[in-house]
Design a protein around this nucleic acid. Structure first.
Lengths: 384, 384
DNA sequence: CTGAAAGCGCTTACAG
DNA sequence: CTGAAAGCGCTTACAG
């Protein structure tokens, strides 16, 4: 008989005839033996069989006691629970997952984890998911592009029960598509056109329209727009909202008032310089930035050059990042319900993972609010 | 014979005698059957047996082809690879992990995921970990306190191969301690005194001393300190650095120059108000804040009240968050190598998980650099 | 170089 | 109410 078979036999016999401690000891010896040849493995940790043995019941009963205590008679239950305590037993989740074919893990794809906007959305996701005992794997798409493919493969390999997409697109690997992964998907924050899974967003068009409407109500008619990257859906929607607001107010669109940006602070600084390069009379009296970071960069730049905010220029941002309330002047902006966006998306995904497709597609729009602060005011001169 | 046994038999027979498709079909029927009674399970997904059957080899050979292709003869390898492709096979990681007793998952405990400081540390961790094919479970300690216990239990249950502690303490649950989890631990950012696992930090004492030394070199002698929460190790170390710098310069410590804060923007605002409440002549000419957020809150407050920064007050922060370069004036601060802190800690943990304890404890100090910007200058009047 | 078989640690229908 | 047994999908020593 081969050595390893002997070890196994020993172990089994020991389990049958000895106390918990002895059988564990044999197992450890076997483990040490393996560890030398292969990689590092962790020794012991009570298994369900150890608990069963100590309690004098079958493993089935231990399993039931833990999963549905009410079906087990009290006396048994007490014995099992005591044994669980004494052995320090915790179920091996890999084994359970293998058995029930679930992973209890959700993959969250985020464009850039270092972006505070997403960090707070993640909090909402994490709260909801962990309350339902789901783990969270964060697929941070910033950095090497090969990562995205690896995550897709991971999900296709059944390593997650669901996916939350904050990245504005359905992830792909060279030969696989997330849609083929047979797990529910939910998108949040960045709407992905043409998909049939639930999407949790704010109404960017409407909210942008409201932001620009605020400037119009203050009396501005010469309103610039500082854009995000053209291909981004949020940019497209916010630009559309800007246009709608102008149209509704009967203000002619002026392509010269659209400054190209890319959502970065630096883009805001450059847009600020572009503004300063204009003749004072040619300058807009107000500006709507597609996000807060650009708005803050722009304010800082024009302010340093001597322009008064909001007297010479009113500025509205978008997102409601913490810093919008720290900067000077504080920034009037659209506050997104970041935590709630995450929590709602997670709840939707949990429902999908638990009950399967629950009827028609569900696109949920969460309310975003215009937060009035110190960066907006009526224009100095009444509109010409 | 019981129904489920019949199903299993059918399935097994089919596997032996029919093509891939047929056997999968039977499996699906069995799955559907189960799905009705239990929770939602995902149907099919090729298993190793399907690949083996299609390639006409044993499952052992498929496994070997994937794990160590060089031990398999080329002809076989090609057949197996083709079958893998045709079936879209991806190994079930729960099953593999169960077998090899690893999880390929690392738990990272972070005090607050919405804090941009940690977000960037996380990036470094994520880059390193994912390159080594480790997954990342984020234990976000912000929020409900019960969470910490759940995560400890999870690790003790063998759900992670290692833990990265960014939270300044070894996590505990009511009845378990992370140190009993039999997995390697590594701490980063916040040093945990008295532990024997590796810790990756910067030298906070020394760096704080350098920051205050910079103010002293500029000619300041009346230097305030805006503290973090007393119990925090970073606060203690930075305060110690402040004291050392004063002592070395022969400047008497003045308890009245220590303002109590808690690392929040709001604390900075309040400290700013406290400063404004002083008689101008009694005010310090410089201030060292234990972190950037407080420094920025303070600057904003005193600046709004008419003080000139840096002319009336020089300010140095600590951390090097993005906003320190966005605010006005830009903030002189200590820039921590956040990404590198994360990457180094992750690399250390990987080495521990792969090779076991590798000799003596390894505390690694990474260099942090004083970044000179616009918030510091020589005092207006020479020191009295 | 390859296959048969054991076993990782659970859960759950079935039978009693 | 409880136990015996099958099986989730892999990996890996052993034998050939």
């Amino acid at each position: 008989m081969a050595l390893h078979a002997v070890c196994n036999r020993l172990h089994r016999d020991a389990s049958r005839t000895s106390r918990f401690c002895k059988s564990r000891h044999d197992a450890e010896i076997a483990n040490l033996d393996m560890a030398k040849r292969t990689r590092v493995t962790r020794p012991k940790a009570a298994r369900i069989a150890d608990v069963a043995q100590l309690a004098g019941v079958s493993v089935a009963t231990v399993s039931r006691t833990l999963a549905r205590p009410e079906v087990v008679i009290e006396e048994t239950r007490l014995r099992v629970l005591a044994a669980v305590r004494d052995t320090g037993y915790m179920p091996n989740i890999s084994a359970r997952n293998l058995r029930v074919r679930k992973t209890m893990v959700v993959l969250v794809a985020v464009p850039d984890i270092a972006n505070p906007f997403f960090a707070e959305v993640l909090q909402g996701i994490d709260d909801t998911l962990s309350a339902a005992d789901y783990g969270l794997i964060i697929a941070n798409l910033a950095g090497s592009p090969g990562k995205e493919a690896r995550y897709v493969d991971l999900v296709c390999a059944g390593q997650a029960d669901g996916v939350l997409l904050l990245c504005g697109h359905v992830m792909r690997s060279p030969d696989r598509d997330l849609r083929d992964a047979r797990v529910p998907l939910v998108a949040a924050c960045e709407y992905i056109p043409g998909e049939k899974f639930p999407q949790i967003t704010i109404d960017n068009v409407d909210t942008a329209r409201e932001a620009v409407g605020h400037l119009i109500k203050l009396g501005h008619t010469n309103i610039a727009y500082l854009s995000g990257p053209k291909s981004n859906i949020l940019e497209q929607q916010r630009l559309e909202g800007y246009r709608q607001a102008l149209r509704e107010a009967g203000i002619a669109a002026d392509a010269g008032l659209i400054l190209r940006g890319d959502f970065t602070f630096r883009a805001g600084v450059e847009a600020g310089r572009a503004l300063l390069a204009l003749e004072p009379v040619a300058r807009p009296t107000a500006l709507f930035a597609a996000n807060d970071e650009m708005a803050i960069g722009l304010i800082k730049t024009v302010h340093t050059a001597g322009l008064q905010i909001p007297d010479d220029l009113s500025v509205v941002g978008f997102d409601g990042i913490a810093y919008a309330d720290y900067c000077e002047p504080t920034l009037t902006t659209i506050v997104q319900p970041r935590r709630d966006l995450g929590a709602t998306a997670a709840a939707e995904l949990i429902s999908l993972m638990t009950n399967g497709r629950a009827g028609p597609r569900k696109d949920i729009k969460l309310p975003a609010t215009l937060m009035l602060r110190d960066s907006t005011r009526a224009p100095r001169r009444s509109p010409s």
